[in-house]
């Protein structure tokens, strides 16, 4: 049985690498990524699972890293925005002006990337269902819809 009783060195698979760092069992994955590993692409926007700015992929599925313990991620594949290498959705966000202040952008892009991989055939309805998990306060969302549509083969 995996057990972590106090602050200890844990090992996570992140962006294709094994990363070791200290974590308290009650540390969230978001905290661990940012404060222990310096992966600050995932942003704290509410730490309550409401805004999506901290979204990362866990085994390919978008997860709000503020609502996951770092310990829970042991044994799973975590992908953060730092793990994407100029993938089409990033280019699409640039081309469609799908951000302004940019703070929500990594979370949106990770959610989009999960969707593109899992449901490349997504309809607008499915896009909405997935991306309603994230809040953008600067854009009108119209630009984000254009960006994701432009990279989904189904659209």
């Amino acid at each position: 049985m995996l057990q972590i009783l106090n602050e200890s060195l844990i090992e996570l698979h992140i962006n294709g690498e094994i990363r070791k760092a200290l974590a308290r069992p009650s540390d969230t994955l978001l905290f661990f990524l940012r404060e222990r590993l310096g992966l600050t692409g995932a942003k704290p926007g509410c730490e309550n699972g409401d805004c999506g700015a901290c979204t990362v992929l866990v085994d390919g599925w978008p997860v709000k890293s503020c609502l996951m313990l770092a310990a829970e991620a042991i044994g799973h594949e975590v992908t953060t925005i730092e793990g994407l290498d100029k993938v089409p959705i990033q280019q699409a966000f640039v081309d469609k002006f799908a951000f302004q202040c940019g703070y929500c952008t990594p979370g949106f892009i990770m959610n989009c990337q999960g969707l593109i991989n899992i449901h490349p055939d997504a309809s607008d309805e499915v896009i909405h269902e997935w991306l309603q998990s994230n809040i953008c306060r600067c854009t009108s969302y119209q630009e984000i819809m254009e960006a994701i549509r432009s990279v989904l083969p189904s659209q």
């Binding site: 049985m1 995996l2 057990q3 969230t28 829970e72």
Partner: peptide
């Protein structure tokens, strides 16, 4: 940030989970 510490257990079976509880 959770402002207190707790321990984390990940049992592999129901018996294991009930026992550790």
């Amino acid at each position: 940030m959770i402002p207190f510490d707790f321990e984390y257990y990940r049992p592999q079976s129901i018996t294991n989970a009930a026992d550790i509880f």
